[in-house]
Deep mutational scan, measured.
Amino acid sequence: KKTCTFCKKEIWNTKDSVVAQTGSGGSFHEFCTSVCLSLYEAQQQ
Rank of each mutant, 00 (worst) to 15 (best):
V19K: 15
C4A: 00
S24R: 10
S34I: 02
G25K: 13
E30P: 11
E10V: 09
V18C: 02
G26D: 12
K1A: 01
H29I: 08
E41V: 03
G26K: 10
T3K: 04
E30L: 05
T14Q: 13
T22K: 06
K9W: 01
G26T: 13
E10Q: 04
L37K: 10
K1C: 06
F28E: 15
L37N: 04
N13P: 03
V35E: 14
S38C: 06
V18T: 15
C36T: 01
E30F: 03
V19W: 07
L37C: 10
T5G: 06
L39Q: 15
C4R: 00
S27K: 11
L39S: 12
S24T: 11
C4L: 00
E41W: 01
A42E: 13
F28A: 15
T3C: 03
F28S: 15
C7V: 00
C7Y: 00
D16E: 15
I11L: 09
A42T: 10
V19A: 12
N13D: 11
G25I: 06
L37Q: 13
I11Q: 05
F28H: 15
T22F: 03
C7K: 00
Y40C: 07
L39K: 12
F31H: 03
G26L: 06
K2V: 11
S34C: 02
V35M: 08
K2S: 03
K1V: 06
S34Q: 13
V35S: 12
E30I: 11
H29K: 08
L37T: 06
Q21K: 09
Y40A: 12
F28G: 15
W12G: 15
G25E: 13
D16F: 08
V18A: 13
S27F: 13
Q43V: 05
L39R: 13
T14A: 10
E30Q: 07
F28C: 06
S24P: 14
H29A: 13
C7R: 00
V35N: 12
V18P: 13
T14R: 12
C36R: 01
T33Q: 14
K9I: 14
V19H: 04
K9C: 02
A42C: 05
S38D: 14
L37V: 08
V19D: 12
C7D: 02
Q43I: 02
F31S: 02
C7S: 00
L39I: 06
T5K: 06
V18Y: 03
G25M: 09
K8L: 10
S38G: 12
K1M: 10
S34K: 12
Q44M: 09
G23M: 08
V18Q: 11
K9V: 09
C7W: 00
T33V: 01
F6Y: 02
G25C: 02
V35I: 04
D16V: 04
Q44S: 10
S34T: 09
T5D: 06
T14M: 03
K8A: 05
S27R: 11
C7I: 00
F6M: 14
G23N: 04
Q44D: 14
V35W: 02
F31T: 03
G25N: 04
N13H: 08
C32Q: 01
K2G: 05
K8E: 07
E30A: 11
Q44N: 09
T14W: 03
Q21R: 10
E30N: 06
H29C: 05
C32T: 01
T5H: 05
Q44A: 14
T5C: 10
C7M: 00
S38Y: 02
A20N: 02
Q21N: 09
C4V: 00
T33F: 00
L39G: 15
Y40L: 06
K9P: 01
Q43L: 05
T33H: 06
T22A: 12
K1S: 05
C32R: 00
Q21D: 10
T3N: 12
C36A: 01
T14N: 06
I11T: 01
S17Y: 01
H29L: 05
A20R: 14
F31E: 01
S34M: 03
Q45T: 13
S27A: 12
T22I: 03
A42H: 06
T5I: 09
G25D: 10
K8T: 08
I11H: 08
Y40I: 03
A42S: 12
S24W: 05
V18D: 12
F6E: 13
V35D: 11
A42F: 02
S34A: 13
K8N: 10
A20V: 09
C32P: 01
L37P: 03
G23R: 09
S27H: 10
T14V: 06
Q45H: 14
Q45I: 07
T5L: 08
